[in-house]
């Protein structure tokens, strides 16, 4: 692939960066990133990756845009309330950059469909809003050895980690099992400050860009924690767990698990 004059102009401010250059830009244009959830995390991640010229972006979301999403889900706009989030995302991204091939998936991930969807992508971003999907995505990425950027938010807190299966700790090395339904406040009642989603979603986009370009240091076997009230970042170590159920020495996970839905209020 060679860059057109228009592409050289569009991406000039990052092409001039050492570590990127024309080669790096070509790499981005031929990369495929799957974003799970066109919500608070997926929105900023998708917009910045699209702006940077990631060539193919898949977006999985089964929901429709609601008015109460717009406080943080900046992919969507008032006129798209009621429209599928994946379609709304495609529209917004293509307005920003028509170099990007956006593939919408209007569906809910399950143990049946997930492997087929993620298999063709270079890296996956988890921006989902529930534990069952998060554990399913982690397990599927480990099975297919697919790199995964994990991000989670709650009120004023955010967490980010990058998972390179086989090399670094996975989400289950960190938290072996999801909480049982009812023990952790649901996504609906909790609330979230929009900028927390923005900050964490962009940390994920940054991890993905570094992975695709093969530069810098990733947040592997580390958890970055952000708190907006104190404007404080911290990093704790996540040792790769030899006894991990999915990525340990003797993994016992033989079949993907569909955990019970936690935020059942959300289902319409």
């Amino acid at each position: 692939m060679s860059l057109s004059n228009e592409q050289i102009e569009r991406y000039s401010r990052q092409i001039i960066l050492n570590n990127i250059g024309g080669k790096g830009q070509e790499k981005l244009l031929s990369s495929k990133v799957l974003i799970i959830g066109a919500g608070g995390l997926g929105s900023p991640a998708a917009l910045y990756l699209a702006a940077a010229g990631v060539g193919t972006i898949g977006i999985v979301d089964s929901d429709k845009v609601e008015l109460n999403n717009l406080q943080r889900q900046i992919l969507h706009s008032t006129k798209n309330v009621g429209k599928s989030k994946a379609e709304s995302a495609k529209e917004r991204i293509n307005n920003l950059n028509s170099d990007v091939n956006v593939i919408p998936y209007i569906l809910r991930l399950t143990s049946e469909n997930i492997l087929d969807i993620i298999k063709d992508y270079d890296i996956v971003i988890d921006g989902s809003d529930n534990f069952p999907t998060r554990y399913l995505v982690n397990d599927a990425c480990v099975i297919l050895k697919k790199p995964l950027s994990h991000g989670g938010i709650f009120k004023y807190d955010g967490q980010v980690m990058t998972i390179i299966p086989g090399e670094s700790a996975c989400y289950r090395c960190l938290f072996p099992q999801p909480p049982p339904p009812g023990l952790v406040p649901g996504c609906q009642e909790a609330g979230i400050l929009g900028v927390v989603a923005g900050i964490i979603g962009l940390m994920q986009a940054n991890e993905v860009l570094k992975y695709l370009l093969g530069i810098g240091e990733l947040l592997t076997s580390k958890l970055l924690i952000f708190n907006a009230i104190e404007s404080r970042f911290r990093i704790v170590k996540i040792p790769k767990n030899d006894n991990c159920f999915v990525c340990g020495k003797n993994p016992t996970l033989t079949k993907l698990i569909d955990y019970e839905e936690f935020c059942s209020v959300k289902k319409r």
Binding site: G37, G40, G42, I153, F154, Q159, R234, V236
Partner: peptide, 10 residues
Amino acid sequence: ISIIPAIAGG
């Protein structure tokens, strides 16, 4: 000492 729970929001 830090207590760090899994959080699922997105």
